[in-house]
Design a binder for these strands. Structure first.
Lengths: 201, 201
DNA sequence: CGCGTTGTTGGACAAGCGCGCAACGGCGGC
DNA sequence: GCCGCCGTTGCGCGCTTGTCCAACAACGCG
């Protein structure tokens, strides 16, 4: 195969890994699958990554990190906490495509067995929570939210979104994506003492 | 090893599978592990199950089903909805031991790719939600809860518990089990219009 | 041009996997 | 007491896994 710059090749490996993981799951993705997807040898992957664990972690980090960045941008584009929370909700459930959530499910399950994956999953999850918490803190300071414990409120909101989205992705028609958005909006209203219309205008 | 009746042996295999899965996860449980745990040969497992997938599905169903039964019993032992909800909460987070939750994580992740696992996971998840919903409906009828949509309220409560417990199991010390219980209690009070009175028993 | 650096190859390796199978052995019916 | 059934064994087949490594080839520099 063509000789690539180190950063290009590393990127190519991550991309190929995600393409494979998309169709057969993160945990079931093997070195040879990724190599075949790239059209190279399997030895090449170990020239860039110490272990398969690291490959999977890097791939997950890339995909999930990009979603986090998008959410941050969407939040930063708004200026009052109310709109920011609305933007966050819009960003989470619908934009967080089924396939990324499936990656999260894989990562949570694999976390127990793959230290590198756990480290990434843990860090990104905390970052998501921090994003929500900062919005809440700003809202409380600005007087438009009411929350005794912004840290806890953020965890509750994020965990509910995770739990609901999980049902959509893992069990299909048990509940719908529209339910997630509407119900999470209700929960935010109750949690922060405000009214949030999370539905797309 | 001693010769057992078919149903006894089947049961022994399921039990041994769970014991192994408890320490290394459902997905990482192999035929040889289970055989070693039972103290028999690996061939014996294939005499009772067509494939390893069937073994894992049976084990998950048994473990998760038993937890559901226990929760149902705990709820049935109480008579007013308020105590029932409290019993449910106490039953869920702490008694739902880490390793059963890990089983659920595996099941949710595998659901997309294993129809048999999805069917079991889906059915049991709906049963859990129905358990909560029935408590809420009874509470609303009895006048001690206030809920516009018990169906949605039950999904919200259960999903938040799932999402929070997930963090404990997948990420260890990010949040604690005590946080889950306390936060979910707060959420339940807010969700059902109960004034936050006695959070600590 | 020559030469070192380095991206890349392709296969070796041991370990582990699910699964199948011929043979053993203890129990119950005749 | 014998025999057939069947739970059980122990092994091995074919394959896949992650990891490693010696050899090859393309590139930049002197």
């Amino acid at each position: 195969m063509a000789r690539l710059q180190p950063h290009e090749r590393r990127d190519a490996i991550v991309q190929a890994t995600l393409r494979v993981a998309r169709s057969q799951g993160l945990g079931a993705t093997t070195v040879r699958d990724v190599a075949r997807e790239m059209g190279t040898s399997s030895g090449l992957i170990h020239h860039y990554f110490d272990s398969m664990d690291d490959v999977l972690a890097a791939a997950f980090e890339h995909a999930a990190g990009r979603d986090l960045e998008r959410a941050r941008d969407a939040v930063a584009a708004e200026h009052d906490p109310h709109s920011q929370l609305e933007a966050f909700m819009h960003c989470y459930a619908p934009a967080q495509s089924d396939w990324t959530m499936q990656l999260w499910l894989d990562a949570w399950a694999e976390a127990a067995r793959r230290p590198a994956v756990q480290a990434v999953s843990r860090r990104l999850n905390r970052a998501w929570q921090a994003l929500v918490r900062d919005i809440i803190v700003a809202g409380v300071a600005g007087g438009c939210f009411r929350a005794d414990d912004p840290e806890a409120a953020a965890w509750r909101l994020l965990s509910m979104l995770d739990g609901l989205t999980l049902q959509v992705v893992a069990h299909g028609t048990l509940i719908s994506r529209a339910d997630v958005v509407a119900w999470a909006g209700d929960a935010a209203h109750r949690e922060l003492g405000i009214s949030i219309d999370a539905r797309r205008p």
